[in-house]
Amino acid sequence: MTQIRLFLLLLMVVFVFQAKAQQKAVRLLTIDQLEKRVSHQDTVFIVNFWATWCGPCVKELPVFDQLQKTYKNQPLKVLLISMDFKSKLNTAVVPFVQNHHFTSEVFLADKSSEQEFIDRIDKNWSGALPGTLVINTKKNLHKFYEQEFTYPELNKLYQNSK
């Protein structure tokens, strides 16, 4: 009897940890939440929009994570926001993120309207992926880049945005 109880307890612990791990891996983020997050003063936000199905995005993700790792002691926040379908959270996005062990925070866009989400990120964004938003509220900087980045390019962008 005690053995069964112990086993059940263990099972519960495993479940809780798994749930926690998943929760930590990818959280949902609405446009309101994102706007609030990036309005934080004294921090440079580099927000990359990507998707698991987007080849060029997957290729450049390590570049963004490298930047976060390199400047972990500076007021820089790299946010990786997946534009995958919400229905793909557990089947595609979470497994992908768990395989990559990103240092940066990863989210899945929780968008009631794709159109509204895109427009509120930046009026000039066509919706093509990948895309990158740089925000420095203190410097009144808000710029969207509909392009891919190499590490030197991204590093330069960060240095110029500080």
């Binding site: 987007c54 992926l129 990948p130």
Partner: peptide, 9 residues
């Protein structure tokens, strides 16, 4: 005119 997520050309 509308916008949507897509693959960059």
């Amino acid at each position: 005119s509308t916008k949507a997520i897509g693959c960059s050309i």
